[in-house]
Design a protein around this nucleic acid. Structure first.
Lengths: 364, 364
DNA sequence: GCTCGCTAATAATGCGTATTACCGGATTGA
DNA sequence: TCAATCCGGTAATACGCATTATTAGCGAGC
C-alpha cells in the first residue's frame, strides 16, 4: 500500500536516460566534462513535470548537499509553559524569514535538559547535522560547545550580542549600550541631574551593556553614576528616596512594576516625583498597568536578520568553490556582527523633575 | 578543517569488528541468524562510549529507519506578525511533549503560500519525508491532500476535530458541543429563558459544534433557539434588544467586546441587562477589558495529546512487524479520535436576568 | 589507418545506516 | 568419518542523491 515515492531513477527510466543525467539536469550543473544535449534536457524536464518529482532532502544532505532546513536551538524551553514568552517575538521574525527563504525550521526540542537548561551535548551534534545551519538563542553559553561549533565549521548565528570572544561568533544583537545612553539623555534633557541605575550588576551581556550605556551617558553630562544594587524592591525604593534621585533607569528583569508600587507606597509618586525609564519591554505586562517609557528591543527584526545571516553563511559554506571571491563586496545586512537599534518608547513614566530639586537644563 | 563526524565504521575499526556488527549492537537487534558474543558486544559498546558516537538521523531514515523528528504543518503562518497568536498555546504543549518524547520538531515554513494559506503540494510531500510523522493545524483542508496522506500511509494527526470523513482522520479536538451545552445550562440555571446565539453560522467545525450544542441544550430545556446572524455588531445589538433576549452566547471571532460596547451604548448594561457567555477565549484581550464568562479551549493539552498520539502512530507504523497484535489493548490516551473537555471560566459577564423579565428557575 | 579532439552521455562510487545473505570453524549426532 | 547443527560474525546491498571517472561515437588532421 505505501507506494514508494518518485526518485530520480524513476524519472530517468521515463526519460530514457541514466539517473546521473537527471541529477545533472536538476542541478544545472555540468561539472567539467559532462554535457547534456538540449533535446535530452527537455525530455528529462518533461519527465520531472509529469511525475511531480521532488528531491529527497535527506538523501541530498547525505550526499553532501543541503537540506534547506535551518535549525533553532534555545537554551531554555522555546515555548515556556509558565512565565513570559521570551522567544515568541523572535520566532515571529524567524518564521517570516524562513518563509521568504523557502526554508524549513527545525526546533531542537530533544536536547537533554539538565537543570532546566538545554545542553548541546555530543548527542545533539549529530542531530544538528540534519539542518544546514543553526540559530542559537539564549544567554547560556558553554565554551566547549562553542569551540566545537567553530572547529567543525558548522554554520551558526547567535541571537543576542556575544561579548566574550565575540570576534569569532556571528551574532545579531540589540544595541543596549546606545539605547540606554539615549534614555539617560532623555532624562537629562528633561532636567534631571540625579539619575540612578537600579539592579544588581550581573555579568550577562545585556546588563553589561546597559551599565556601560548608563556610565557613558552620565559621564558625557558630567554627572556621577548612582548604582542601587539592592536585593529587594523595598530596599531599592528606600535607597532611591535616601539618595534623592529624581529619575531611575531599570531593566525589565528588576521588577519595575513592584518598584513603582513600593515607591508610591512610600509617598513618592511615579513619575511626578520619580521618573522611571524601562530598559526594554516589561516582562509581565499587567492588565491596566503603567505605560512605561523607555525603549523596545526589536526582537522580530532580530529574528529576521539572524536567519538571513545564517542563510548566507550556509550558502558561503555550501558553495565550497571559489572561497576567495566571497567577501569581495560584503552584502549589506549580512555582516557577521549586527547590532540593531532599539527604538524609544514614549510612554508615560518620564516627566521633568519636581521643581525645587533639579531644574530643566533648558527652558524653551 | 571540517573534521568528519564519527561513523559506525570508525567505531567498528576501533573495536576491530565490521560496521554491520556495530549496527547490530546499537539496535539490540539480532535478526534471525546473527549472533554477537557478549565479549565483542562490550568492546563495541566501549568504542561507542569512547568516540562519543551518535547515529546520523538522516542516514537512518534513508535506510528505512526513523529520524526522531516530528513535523508541524500549519495552514496559516505559525507565528503571525499581526493579529492574535492562535497557534502559540498549541506549540507550548507540543514542545513540552516533544521534550518528553526526545523528539525534534520540524516546522514546515517553506510550503508555498497561496493567498495567505499554505498548500501541502507535491513539492511539500518530499519535505514531509524528513519527519517521521506530522501534525496538521488549521481549519483548511484539501480533499486531495488528505487522500494522498492516507494513500501513502504517512502518519499524521490533526489538531481540531475533523467532521467530514472524520472516521479515517486521526485528530485531537476540543469538545465544543459539550462545552456550549454547559454554557446554556449555566444560563438557564441562573433563570434565563431567552437565550440567543450570536454570529453567522459558518461551516467550520467549531461553529457547527457550537450551534449543535446550543440547539441541544435549548431543546433539552424546552426553549426555542434564537439565532442572531447580523453582519455587524450594531445590527446584532439592535436585534438582541428587539427580541428581548436576556442572555446570549457568542463565539470569540464574532467580536464580543464590540458587541458589549454597542449594547451599553444602546442603554443595555452587560451583564445586568444582558448576560454574555463567550464560547472560547477572547481573541484580542483588551487591557482592563471584561473578564468574560464562558469556557476555555485546552489548547496546550491538545498539543500534548496530539503529539503523543502521533508518536504512537509512528511507532506502530515503524514497527512493521506483528501488525495484528497492535490494538489488542488500546493504550489509554492514544485513541484515534480524542475530544478534550473545555473547562468553564467563571468570569463576570453572567448574572441572573433582570427581575420582571425572566425568573430564576429555582430560588435557593 | 591511426590518433586527436570534441560531444553526449553512462558507469561507478561515496555518503552513513539497516538488513539480508552467506561463511568458516567448532561441536555434536549417527 | 561424514553430515548436521550451532556459534559468531562478515560481505554485500539498498536507500536516494551528487559527483568523478570513463566510454562511445564521430569528424578532422597527419
Amino acid at each position: 500500500m505505501p507506494r514508494r515515492r518518485i526518485t530520480q531513477t524513476d524519472v530517468a527510466a521515463m526519460a530514457g536516460v541514466s539517473q546521473a543525467t537527471v541529477s545533472f539536469v536538476l542541478n544545472g550543473n555540468t561539472p567539467a566534462g559532462v554535457r547534456i544535449g538540449e533535446e535530452t534536457r527537455q525530455r528529462v524536464l518533461d519527465a520531472i513535470r509529469i511525475t511531480g518529482y521532488t528531491a529527497n532532502p535527506l538523501a541530498q544532505r547525505l550526499a553532501g548537499g543541503l537540506t534547506q532546513i535551518l535549525g533553532v536551538f534555545t537554551y531554555e524551553a522555546t515555548f515556556p509553559r509558565a512565565g513570559r514568552d521570551f522567544y515568541g517575538p523572535f520566532l515571529v521574525g524567524i518564521e517570516h524569514a524562513a518563509e521568504r527563504l523557502g526554508v524549513d525550521l527545525l526546533l531542537f526540542t530533544s536536547a537533554p535538559a539538565t537543570g532546566g537548561r538545554r545542553q548541546l551535548t555530543r548527542d545533539g551534534w549529530q542531530r544538528l547535522g540534519v539542518a544546514d545551519g543553526c540559530l542559537l538563542l539564549g544567554q547560556h553559553e558553554d565554551r566547549g560547545e562553542l569551540q566545537h561549533l567553530l572547529d567543525t565549521n558548522y554554520p551558526f548565528v547567535f541571537i543576542g550580542k556575544r561579548g566574550s570572544d565575540g570576534g569569532r561568533l556571528p551574532y545579531v544583537g540589540a544595541d543596549y549600550v546606545g539605547a540606554t545612553t539615549r534614555q539617560v539623555h532623555r532624562l537629562t534633557a528633561l532636567g534631571h541631574r540625579h539619575i540612578g541605575y537600579i539592579g544588581v550588576r550581573g555579568t550577562d551581556q545585556p546588563t553589561l551593556d546597559r551599565v556601560e550605556g548608563y556610565r557613558t551617558a552620565l559621564k558625557a553630562q558630567g554627572l556621577t553614576p548612582s548604582f542601587v544594587e539592592a536585593d529587594d524592591v523595598a530596599a531599592a525604593a528606600a535607597e532611591i528616596l535616601a539618595r534623592s534621585l529624581t529619575a531611575v533607569v531599570v531593566a525589565p528583569e528588576n521588577h519595575p512594576e513592584e518598584l513603582a508600587d513600593e515607591l508610591e507606597r512610600r509617598g513618592a509618586r511615579v513619575p511626578v516625583d520619580v521618573s522611571v525609564l524601562l530598559l526594554g519591554q516589561p516582562h509581565h505586562p499587567r492588565r491596566g498597568g503603567r505605560r512605561w517609557s523607555g525603549f523596545s528591543v526589536p526582537r522580530e527584526e532580530m529574528g529576521v536578520r539572524a536567519l538571513y545571516l545564517l542563510s548566507r553563511l550556509v550558502a558561503d559554506d555550501g558553495g565550497r568553490r571559489d572561497r576567495e571571491a566571497r567577501r569581495a563586496h560584503a552584502v549589506p545586512g549580512t555582516e557577521l556582527h549586527q547590532l540593531l537599534n532599539c527604538p524609544d518608547v514614549e510612554g508615560a513614566t518620564a516627566v521633568p523633575p519636581p521643581s525645587g530639586t533639579d531644574r530643566p537644563a533648558r527652558v524653551p
